[in-house]
Amino acid sequence: MEVFNFTYRARQPVARRVHVGVVGSGDLEVLLEPSVDQHAHVAVTTSVDGFEAVWKIVLDRFFSRFAGAATIEINDFGATPGVVMLRLEQAVEALRT
């Protein structure tokens, strides 16, 4: 198990909190809520060691399109980068609805 933290600059506030996913095999849960400052803060806890660089690439890509000042907690149980991105996009989608 490993824990990483990432910070991104944000442009717009996030209005509410959203939860998607489950810490099941090949899946993850995302808890997204308003951040206390003008940044997005991501805390990743993952069951698979040694993939910090891959997490950074996936999150860089996500934050190239998402500018919300959100605090995001990710609890991962071996999701592929594709599933990670899908869950993050689901969370953003849920923010809008």
Binding site: M1, V23, E29, T45, S47, N75, F77
Partner: peptide, 10 residues
């Protein structure tokens, strides 16, 4: 669970 290296769910 975290004490045993297992990811917990919220």
């Amino acid at each position: 669970l975290p004490l045993q290296g297992i990811v917990a769910q919220s």
